[in-house]
């Protein structure tokens, strides 16, 4: 079997390359971090204060990106997460203002996200509209509601406990946001890697037909990942509200793009079937680190945007071959 051995050899070589490419985001993150650590050491990049800053600034994106990892693994997309976060920040702030307490605020915030996510999922699976279009439309609708319910006015949050739990508190030196990020990331990782739901999500994204022929309820899987993405975006909205002590329609603006960038940068395939939550979190941290480093370097916003864009394109270009061939 001469062809077998040559195939095996090719496979070994291919596997080696594959691994290298698969871990590109980790390598890139270490390189970026090391570069800033050396060049910006005297400017305080490595201080624990600054590191916690990076974590705080990326936490909300990371959390939404964990849920987005499932959506993209199932070969769908959710563009409405930023707007859902904005609306949820307002509904939870309004619940507090009307005296429903923290539980009321949680129900309002998460309920908003879950409801919108479920509608997204229903339209995608039952009405068969591509998720790109459904969530693009929903992005406008949710944002419109967020502007409408308070006539674009922010809603202040006076409940200190709510603010502490959702985003502005620190336990010792550890920001509550870090704990939220870790909890969501661990849950996401375990669900994707260790449960039947995770396997079915990947199978659905990898080959929808084969998944269906294997008894996977493809429609339900898609509905569930989109509903979960909405739910988590609702949580993100509450974290914005807690951190900023208010609900505002401007929260989360443009987040959908940062979230998708973090997921793809992390090594999840835009075509579905391959997904990694750990990669996603690293991807998000990398974007945050670049942001932070460039600010410390004293670059102005325009330069930051250019460099950030270039790094994202480069990293995805390297990682992409791993998924495609």
């Amino acid at each position: 079997m001469q062809s077998n051995t040559s195939e095996a050899k090719a496979t070994v070589a291919w596997t080696r390359k594959f691994n290298w490419r698969q871990y590109i985001v980790y390598i890139a993150f270490i390189v970026v971090f090391a570069y800033f650590a050396i060049t910006l050491n005297s400017d305080g990049f490595l201080t624990s204060n600054n590191i916690m800053n990076i974590v705080r600034q990326t936490a909300i994106i990371s959390i939404m990106a964990v849920a987005m990892t499932f959506v993209i693994s199932a070969a769908e997309i959710d563009l409405s997460v930023g707007s859902i976060a904005a609306l949820a920040s307002l509904t939870s702030a309004l619940a507090l203002e009307h005296g429903y307490g923290i539980m009321g605020a949680i129900v309002a915030g998460l309920g908003t996200g879950l409801a919108i996510g479920t509608v997204n999922g229903w339209l995608v699976t039952k009405v068969s509209i591509p998720s790109f279009l459904v969530t693009l439309g929903m992005m406008g609708i949710a944002k419109g509601f967020a502007m409408w319910i308070t006539d674009t006015a922010p809603v202040p949050i006076l409940n200190e406990n709510f603010s502490y739990i959702f985003g502005s508190g620190d336990i010792g030196k550890i920001p509550v946001l870090l704990i939220w990020t870790l909890v969501i990331a661990v849950i996401g990782h375990v669900v994707l890697r260790k449960t039947t739901f995770g396997r079915r999500t990947l199978a659905t994204g990898g080959n929808q037909n084969a998944a269906r022929f294997s008894g996977v309820n493809v429609a339900r899987t898609k509905l569930m990942v989109l509903a979960a993405s909405g739910l988590i975006a609702g949580l993100a909205g509450m974290l914005y509200a807690g951190r900023m002590h208010s609900g505002r329609f401007t929260f989360g603006e443009g987040d959908e793009l940062s979230v998708i960038a973090a997921v793809i940068l992390g090594g999840t395939s835009l075509f579905g079937g391959v997904g990694t939550v750990v990669g996603t979190v690293i991807g998000s941290l990398m974007i945050g680190t670049i942001n932070n480093g460039l600010i410390i370097m004293g670059l102005d916003v325009s330069q930051q945007m250019i460099i950030k864009g270039l790094i994202i394109i480069l990293a995805v270009a390297f990682g992409r071959k791993a998924v495609n061939k």
Binding site: G206, N207, A210, F213, G273
Partner: peptide, 9 residues
């Protein structure tokens, strides 16, 4: 290939 397997898995 289309209905039986998720080839990338």
């Amino acid at each position: 290939r289309e209905q039986g397997l998720v080839l990338e898995h």
